[in-house]
Design a protein around this nucleic acid. Structure first.
Length: 436
RNA sequence: UCCGCAGUAGCUCAAUGGCAGAGCAUUCGGCUGUUAACCGAAGGGUUGUAGGUUCGAGUCCUACCUGCGGAGCCA
């Protein structure tokens, strides 16, 4: 019977069988210290030459890194061992002796590691990051499911640009038609929301932009909740509860991994409501003050979208996410509702994560009037026929509704406190990176 | 697309314009408590590609290729 490494502390004094791979091995004459990993953890075995048969001794001694093997031994508490337990090995069966595993326990560069991503996944840090990713995804689903949202996934093949702004990946659709990979489930979400009230979609999203920064992937996972009879304030309330819940669940369930990642957990503990809410005009004022104090290189001009340095400056003023709302309408998508009091502003919100992680959430209230949307579609040069179904949503029972999108990888990178989103997905797709 | 940086052993990196080097990995040997173990030995090179300057180029110049970091755009 197989015992998993994560459960070993419940088996102290017992003989157990572990099935896994050799993570690393040290030796000292007539002692071997194989580190075994099985996907749930890593434990060190101790093999004394006089405690095993000569055949087993020779077989173990010859093993290369990442060899697969089954080990039986007694679990013993030992203060010297990370994890608190060790295995006194009594027998072992080698499944495969592997040689020349490329990723050695030394430093490597990103290019090499990404070329070997299929093997890199086995290392401790990558393992920890992807466990946190799983916790984030689980928290997202649990939160929305428990909050009355219905999962209603949206298509990945789409006939036309959703927003008309970003560059799309084009695919041949049976020769006579072009299809595009989705850049957002947004518009379809509005249709399902009118059917179910509160919905979310959660799936891969594609952007063909040649973005080359630590915050971008060409294929990433996005969760997009949408609520009917909801306003900008409602969506900000939701974002606040949503992010706080995710952070608390990560803290609750992934302590070990956060330790491996050397994450300062106090940064996650401070992600609690209320989040500061900043009107765009007030954000601009802060940026101007920053410029006068010499903290900003260029003076921000009212009317533009916030750039990466602007976002970093604003978020550096707070210990928790800051929600910037009421952007100038011109910088936002065509379907954003205008502020009835000030038509130049859109009822949109971006949630900027602290520590320079940037925009993790973007969303807002959607326009409800057919006439307004027709005018917007024309102004953006979008093909009206493609949006007829979307306009139907306003023709038949139009209601105020709001929602947002959150990038799973950005959120995970933030939770983990790591530099680059490319490590937060098993196989990252980036500009110039399609393999493995 | 634009700006900046880099490319030398399987990996990470050294080398004033003057003999191509180290650590890790690999192979062999040593060590009964190692924590990226340590000690000794061996094998391992078209210095990204093409051209140029020079008595002599890893080093200087030009172009290209590849990667990294950043900007724009966005989640």
């Amino acid at each position: 019977m197989q015992t998993y490494i994560k459960d070993l502390s419940n088996h102290v004094g017992e003989e157990v069988t572990l099935k896994g791979w050799l993570y690393n091995m040290r030796s000292s004459g007539k002692l071997l210290f194989p580190q075994l990993r099985d996907g749930t953890g890593i434990v060190q075995g101790v093999v004394a030459k006089n405690a095993v048969t000569p055949e087993i001794w020779d077989a173990l001694k010859a093993l290369g890194q990442e060899s697969s093997l089954i080990v039986s031994g007694r679990v013993r508490e030992d203060a010297r061992a990370p994890g608190g337990v060790e295995i006194d090995v009594v027998s072992a069966e080698v499944i495969q002796n592997a040689h020349d595993f490329p990723i050695t326990p030394k430093e490597h560069g990103p290019e090499f590691l990404l070329d070997n991503r299929h093997l890199w996944l086995r290392s401790k840090k990558q393992h920890a990051i992807l466990k946190v990713r799983h916790a984030v995804v689980k928290a997202v689903r649990d939160f929305l499911d428990n909050d009355g949202f219905t999962l209603a996934d949206t298509p990945i093949f789409t006939p036309a640009a959703c927003e008309g702004t970003t560059t799309l990946f084009e695919v041949d659709y049976f020769g006579d038609e072009k299809a595009y990979l989705t850049q957002s489930g947004q518009l379809y979400n509005e249709a399902t929301a009118a059917a179910f009230g509160k919905v979310y979609c959660f799936g891969p999203t594609f952007r063909a932009e040649k973005s080359k920064t630590r915050r971008h992937l060409t294929e990433f996972w996005m969760v997009e909740p949408e609520m009917t009879y909801a306003t900008l304030d409602d969506v900000m309330d939701l974002a606040e509860r949503f992010l706080s819940y995710i952070a608390s669940r990560v803290l609750e369930t992934r302590q070990e991994e956060l330790k491996t990642l050397e994450r300062d957990t106090s940064k996650l503990e401070s992600i609690i409501p209320p989040f500061p809410r900043l009107h765009y005009d007030d954000a601009v004022k802060m940026l101007h003050e920053g410029f006068e104090q010499g903290a900003m290189e260029n003076k921000f001009e009212w009317g533009g979208d916030l750039g990466a340095p602007d976002e970093s400056f604003l978020s550096s003023k707070y210990d928790r996410p800051v929600m910037v709302h009421h952007y100038p309408a011109v910088v936002k998508a065509f379907y954003m509702k205008r502020d009835p009091e000030h038509e130049d502003y859109a009822l949109g919100v971006d949630v900027l994560a602290p520590e320079g992680y940037g925009e993790v959430i973007g969303g807002g209230e959607r326009a409800t009037s057919v006439e307004f949307l027709e005018q917007q579609i024309a102004a953006h040069g979008l093909p009206k026929e493609a949006f007829e179904w979307y306009l139907d949503l306003r023709r038949y029972g139009s209601v105020p509704h709001s929602g947002f999108g959150m990038g799973i990888e950005r959120c995970t990178a933030w939770m983990c406190g790591i530099e680059h989103v490319r490590e937060t997905i098993p196989f990252p797709r980036m500009l110039y990176r399609l393999k493995p």
